[in-house]
Design a protein around this nucleic acid. Structure first.
Lengths: 162, 162
DNA sequence: AATGTTAATGAAAACCATTTTCAATAAGGT
DNA sequence: ACCTTATTGAAAATGGTTTTCATTAACATT
C-alpha cells in the first residue's frame, strides 16, 4: 500500500510463490477486485471489473486464474443456482469472516449470515469427525445454504395472488 | 402394483392431478426410474434408463419432466460439482429418509449419510427460524454437503507422493 | 541490464449441459 | 368418437466454461 506499490498483500504473494506460480498483473488485478467487493461476483463480473483498469486481460485468463485460486484455497467457488459460479475471497488478512449463505430462489439475492455460525461450526466439526471415521473420508470443507424468498419477492407473489 | 397395473403409487398421481398436470408415459417412466435407484442420477442417466423400455422418450422430455417435478417438490435437484445436475426422489411413501451428502471431490462419489441428521435438523430449524425473522426470508429449504477425499482417492494420492 | 527458459496469456474455436422452437401427438373431459 | 390443449420429439439455439495454439512476459541466470 505504501512506497508506491500496488495493492498486493504479502500473504497471497507468498502463497503464490510458495506454490511455484508467477505473480502477474492479471492475478493481482483479480485478487484486487475480489478483495474490494462485498458482492458474490461471477467470472464475467470480475472480468468487467478488471477491464476498467486492464482492458487487455481476457475472460479466459479470469477463468484460469479463478480456477487456480480455488485449487490453492485462496478463494471459494459457489453455485447459487443461477447457472454461473460465484467467487469469494477466503479467510486471511483481507478475507471476510466465515459465513454461510441465504439465497432467494426468485431474484437470486444472497445474504451472508454469521448468526449461529459458532453453533453451526461446532456441530459441523463434530459431524465431520464422525463422518470421516465412519466413511473413511478426509473431509476438506462443507457447504451450508438456506433457500427461500426474500421480502420483496414474497410481496410480489402476494400481489399476484390478490 | 397389483391387478396388472404398472408401478404408479397413488400419491404422486394425485400430486400431478392436483396441480392440473396430465399423467403421461414419460412421467410415469421417469418417476419409476427414480424410485428404483439408490444412485444420484443425472438427466442423461435417467434418459438412458428410461430408454430401455421407452426408446421413443427424448432427452428433452426428461429435462422438462425433471424441472416440473422439482417445481412440484416431488424431487430434489443437486449439484455435486461435476457440471451436471443430479436428481433424487423426495420423501414420501417411496422416498428415502432425509439425508445429507458427503462428496468426494476427486472421483465424484457421493455418500448419503443420516448420522447426526437429528442434531443437524434441530440446529437447522433453530437457525431457519432466526434467519427468517432477522432477514425477512421465507425459508423453503436447505443444503448441507461435506466435501473431501474418499478412501481410494486418498490412497491414490499417497502413492503419487511416494 | 540483457538473455533464456518456460509459465502465462489472448483470441478464437470447441465443448457440452440445458433450453427453446415449432409442428405433431396424445391425455382426458365432453 | 371428438375436441381442446397440454405434452412431446427433433433439431437448433443458448451460454457458461474449457481447450487450442501461437505469442508474450516472469523471473532466474548471466
Amino acid at each position: 500500500m505504501n512506497k508506491g506499490e500496488n495493492f498486493h498483500p504479502v500473504w497471497w504473494r507468498n502463497h503464490l510463490r510458495g506454490y511455484g506460480y508467477r505473480i502477474t498483473i492479471a492475478r493481482q488485478a483479480i485478487l484486487d477486485v475480489l478483495s474490494k467487493t462485498e458482492d458474490h461476483l461471477s467470472a464475467e463480473d470480475i472480468f468487467f471489473a478488471v477491464y476498467k483498469k486492464h482492458p487487455n486481460i481476457g475472460l479466459t485468463t479470469v477463468y484460469r486464474t479463478l480456477e487456480l485460486f480455488v485449487q490453492m484455497g485462496l478463494i471459494y467457488k459457489f453455485d447459487f443456482g443461477d447457472g454461473r459460479s460465484r467467487y469469494e475471497l477466503m479467510g486471511g488478512p483481507k478475507g471476510k469472516e466465515h459465513h454461510h449463505h441465504l439465497v432467494c430462489t426468485e431474484c437470486g439475492r444472497v445474504v451472508d449470515y454469521t448468526d449461529f455460525i459458532d453453533d453451526e461450526l461446532e456441530l459441523l466439526r463434530r459431524t465431520e469427525k464422525e463422518l470421516s471415521k465412519k466413511y473413511n473420508f478426509e473431509i476438506k470443507g462443507h457447504l451450508i445454504q438456506f433457500y427461500g424468498l426474500c421480502e420483496s419477492c414474497r410481496k410480489k407473489k402476494e400481489k399476484i395472488i390478490e
